[in-house]
Simulated scan of single mutants.
Amino acid sequence: MDIQENINVNVNENNNEAKKKIIIFLIIVTIAAIAYLLYYQLVGKYNESTENAYVNAEQITVTSQVGGLVTELNITDTQDVKEGDLLASVDDTDYKIALETAEANIAQAVKAYYSTQSQKNAIDQDINAKKVILEKLAEDYTRNKTAKTAGLITDEQLKASKAAYEQAEAGLKASQSNLEGTKVQLSGSLEEYPPLKQAIAMYKTAYINLSRTKIYAPVSGKVARKNITIGQKLMPNQAILVIVDLNNIWVDANLKETQMKDIKIGDKVELKSDINGKEYEGKIIGISAGSGSAMSLLPAQNASGNWIKVVQRIPVKIAISKKSIEKNGVLPIGSSMEIDVKLKKSSEQNNDDSNFELLKSRATKMYQVDEDKLNAEIQEIINKNK
């Protein structure tokens, strides 16, 4: 009996212990559920997060504008460059010869203009002389006709006088026609002389091509995907490297379409980098016009009978605060980010848009030609040959 009582006591104790554990478990679950509900109501419903986000930046592809062998190379992958730095040089021998040939063509055109001008003056003098001769022959012919009527000269003499007159008249017309052709060639000033304008155009082309044998950095950034070596034969418009502007970076986040209901441009974003674990401040500056699949090269076709619904992703562009970048450092493109969009505070955005502003447009002078210098060189060549 004592043994049975002990067994019953132990069973009751075990049951009580089990009940206590169940009650504690239920209390913990209830607290967790309440905590989650409170978190969702106070925080979660105003946030949208994803790990499908990656750093991006402007990538400038540098190409060779002319063909030729690479004779100089001053860069390597991962190197920082500044706008205007000489990256590489192409063999310029042929381009120098082309420029010298173009210079000779300008000189020849100038000389041809003045030579034609001299011809025009000579033709003018020839016409004046022929007019005097023609007037005299016309008088002789008129007098000879009168003399023939009076029987003072023979028919042969009259015919000879007429032939001389007609020959002089034809010579005058030929000279006048030659003068008109010369005037057409000399229509306008030297600068409007067609052969000279053509020679100047060829000189400018040769000058520009020679300048393009030097390849400069159009922007500041970090060199990536270098595809050029010493001695390599380059073709015009061949891509030789990429410059990544890491001071102008943003994040491309791909959010589920079910997360996009309350997201709008201007929402604040907290970003955490997988590279350094640091947090950055961001702001949504753009939402794609279509889902990732719709904007792909080969959009998915959902007209088949075995269609299965797949939640789509909408690309969202997020600018990173410049202050955050200065504080935590730049990030390489393609690196992963965790983002948390703050929906609740979307109406309380920072008005300092310049802190989030990306470069929307830019210009470089590396591809520009100094036209004043070029025109001065051309004028100097013209003056030497006048």
Rank of each mutant, 00 (worst) to 15 (best):
G266A: 00
E17M: 05
L26Y: 13
Q59Y: 03
D124S: 14
L172M: 12
V62D: 06
N276W: 03
T30L: 11
Y165T: 03
V242P: 08
D155L: 09
E83P: 10
Q117I: 01
S177Q: 03
Q157C: 01
K384G: 10
A239Y: 08
N14E: 12
S64V: 04
Y141W: 07
L358E: 07
L255Q: 05
T364W: 13
I275S: 14
Y141M: 08
N15L: 14
A102F: 09
L38A: 04
S293A: 07
T50G: 05
I230E: 10
E5R: 15
L297A: 13
G181A: 08
Q108S: 15
V110H: 12
V219W: 10
G282Y: 01
L87V: 11
K365Q: 13
N128G: 12
Q119M: 12
I28P: 08
D94Q: 08
N247Q: 05
A303C: 04
W307V: 11
P236A: 02
V242R: 06
I208N: 01
E72G: 00
V9W: 14
K345Q: 07
D126H: 09
Q41A: 06
L241A: 11
A163H: 08
L137F: 03
D91M: 12
I75L: 09
W307C: 04
L137G: 11
Q238H: 13
A32Y: 12
Q157T: 02
T78I: 12
K272G: 13
E5K: 15
N15H: 10
I240K: 06
Q59M: 12
T213P: 07
N355Y: 08
K360M: 14
A168T: 00
G151Y: 03
A104N: 14
S177T: 08
A253F: 06
A168C: 00
M1D: 11
A102S: 13
